[in-house]
C-alpha cells in the first residue's frame, strides 16, 4: 500500500506527462490513424460497397431482369442440365436450377449482413451487461455469472446448434438466436476482466467516496473506459457471426431454401459435387464470404491499432 509508485522508468521513459499529446479518444485522431492504414481503408471501402450491393439487390434483380428465385431452365441450363458459366446473360453464371448467381449473391449479402450485424449487436450487449455485472459486483454474482459463461463455452456449440435446429426446424430467427447464444461469452469474459481491473482503479473509489451510486459508477466511470474493447470486439464478432450463419446454412440448418444465402449457395454447390463441373458456384459465394470476413477482420484490427496505440505499437 505504501509502496512507492514511481512512473515506470524503463525503456523509453516517454513521460507522457511532458508531451502534450492530443487526447486519444478524439474521433479525428482515430480516423486519421485509420486512414493511414491502407488495409483498413480497403476493408472499409469493401464493406461500403457490400452494403450498397445488399441494399440495391432488388435494383440488381430488376436490372438483370432475373428474380432471386426465378429459374431459367431454357437459358440458364445447358441441354444436359449443367449450369451455364459467367457470361453476358448471366454475369456470374447460373446455379444447378438455372438461377442467376449474381442476383442470389446480392440477396444472400442481405442475409449475411443482417445476421452478422444483428447477432453481434445483441450478443455484444448481453456480453457487456453480464461482464459488467460480474466484474463490478464480484463475489457471488461474479461466481454465478462466470460459471454460466464457462458453461456456455464448454458446450460443443455446433452439435448443440444442430440438435436445436433439428427439433425446432431451421429458420432465420433461430439461426440468429443460436448465434447470439453461443457468441456473447468471449466479449463477456473480456469485459469482466476489464471491469475487475477498472474497479480497482482509484477513480472508481473516488466516485464511491463522493457518494455516487452503482449505476452512476457503471455508466459514467466504467463504461467510457470500455468503449475501445467494445468497439473492437463487436467489429470482430461480425465476421464470426457471418461464418457461423453460413456454416449452419451449409449444413442445411440455417436459412431455408429457396431463400438465397451464401452458405446455402455453397451447400447446393457441394450437393452431388456439382461445383466440380461448375466451379464458379463455389468460387463466387466462397470468395464473397472470404472477402467479407476478411474485410471485417482487417477493419477490426485497424480499429484496435487506431484506438489503442499501446497495443498498436505491439502490432
Amino acid at each position: 500500500m505504501s509502496v512507492l509508485k514511481t512512473p515506470n522508468q524503463a525503456a523509453a521513459a516517454a513521460d507522457v506527462d511532458q508531451v502534450h499529446v492530443v487526447q486519444r479518444s478524439s474521433l479525428a485522431l482515430t480516423m486519421r490513424r485509420l486512414s493511414r492504414d491502407p488495409a483498413s481503408v480497403i476493408a472499409a471501402v469493401f464493406i461500403i460497397v457490400l452494403v450498397l450491393f445488399a441494399v440495391f439487390a432488388p435494383t440488381i434483380a430488376a436490372w438483370t431482369g432475373h428474380g432471386p428465385d426465378e429459374q431459367f431452365r431454357e437459358t440458364g441450363l445447358s441441354p444436359s442440365g449443367i449450369p451455364v458459366g459467367p457470361g453476358a446473360e448471366f454475369l456470374f453464371g447460373t446455379d444447378q436450377l438455372g438461377r442467376d448467381v449474381l442476383v442470389r449473391l446480392a440477396y444472400g449479402a442481405r442475409i449475411s449482413l443482417l445476421v452478422g450485424v444483428v447477432a453481434s449487436i445483441v450478443a455484444a450487449t448481453i456480453g457487456v451487461t453480464v461482464g459488467m455485472l460480474a466484474g463490478y459486483f464480484g463475489g457471488r454474482v461474479d461466481t454465478l455469472l462466470s460459471r454460466i459463461m464457462d458453461l456456455v463455452m464448454s458446450v460443443p456449440f455446433l452439435l448443440a446448434a444442430i440438435a436445436l435446429v433439428s427439433v425446432l426446424g431451421p429458420s432465420l430467427q433461430l439461426s440468429i438466436a443460436v448465434i447470439i447464444f453461443f457468441t456473447w461469452t468471449p466479449i463477456g469474459r473480456v469485459i469482466r476482466g476489464q471491469v475487475l481491473a477498472l474497479k480497482q482503479r482509484e477513480f472508481v473509489e473516488a466516485a464511491r467516496s463522493l457518494g455516487a451510486g452503482h449505476l452512476g459508477i457503471m455508466f459514467r466511470d466504467i463504461l467510457p473506459n470500455l468503449m475501445v474493447p467494445i468497439i473492437i470486439y463487436s467489429t470482430l464478432m461480425i465476421p464470426s457471426a457471418i461464418v457461423f450463419e453460413a456454416t449452419l446454412s451449409f449444413l442445411g440448418m440455417g436459412i431455408v431454401p429457396p431463400t438465397a444465402s451464401w452458405g446455402g449457395m455453397l451447400s447446393e454447390a457441394a450437393g452431388n459435387s456439382i461445383y466440380l463441373a461448375a466451379p464458379w458456384l463455389v468460387i463466387i459465394p466462397g470468395t464473397a464470404l472470404l472477402f467479407t470476413t476478411l474485410a471485417f477482420n482487417l477493419l477490426g484490427d485497424g480499429l484496435r491499432d487506431a484506438l489503442d496505440p499501446r497495443a498498436a505499437r505491439k502490432a
Binding site: 509508485k5 482503479r201 482509484e202 477513480f203 466516485a207 466511470d221 467510457p224 473506459n225
Partner: peptide
C-alpha cells in the same frame, strides 16, 4: 496515484 484517481476518459 495521480494517474489512477482521475478517470482518463472524462
Amino acid at each position: 496515484d495521480p494517474y489512477g484517481s482521475l478517470n482518463p476518459r472524462r
